[in-house]
Amino acid sequence: MTESPEAGRAGPARPPDGPIAGFEAVYRANFGCVTGFFARRSTDPQEVADLTSDTFVQAIRSFASFDAARGTPRAWLLGIARNVFARHCESRTRTQDVAARLAGRRPIDIDEAAELVVRIDAERAGRVLFERLASLSAADREVVELVDLIGLAPSEAAAALQVSPGALRIRLFRARQRLRAAAGQKKGED
């Protein structure tokens, strides 16, 4: 489940042969990482498709201002994905009406759904692991996911979460401590 560290570095910071080629390189290198992020949170192909689309729409709109000195493309994209998902949860709470929620979304066809189902299935183990982190706060869970599940370097995760490396370290340390304590408690109960 830990994704290749190269994934985030594969996309060039600035396109060598035009901005479209540069964006495509970042897109191709990180598409799996972004869909995986959402497939750990939803088993609905349409929802994964919508959230992935929203993330890359924001990414292409702000690609010109992406600064490689402030983090890798992967950390940048996961930061966007995180915000997209937070807003999605917020609107889902506000809008219970499915029809209203789906308005304006492009429905995916059978082929696309099949492709996303494969990706969602591939994340099954990651989803189980992610659910096991339920004892942690949302903030702590995110840190463990980015560093221990996706394989981001702590500095990359700090960039994705828009916190300082120091704050990230303390959050990671605290989250791992709590996980260890929870695992110990469960072992004791067994």
Binding site: F23, R28, S53, A64, S65, E112, E115, L116
Partner: peptide, 26 residues
């Protein structure tokens, strides 16, 4: 390379490709 992946990229470039060539805000 998957269907959804390709189609999404195509749509992104078609609908938002212009923003790639605009200068970033200072």
């Amino acid at each position: 390379m998957g269907t959804f992946e390709d189609r999404l990229l195509e749509r992104l470039v078609q609908e938002h490709g212009e923003s790639l060539t605009q200068p970033p805000p200072s």
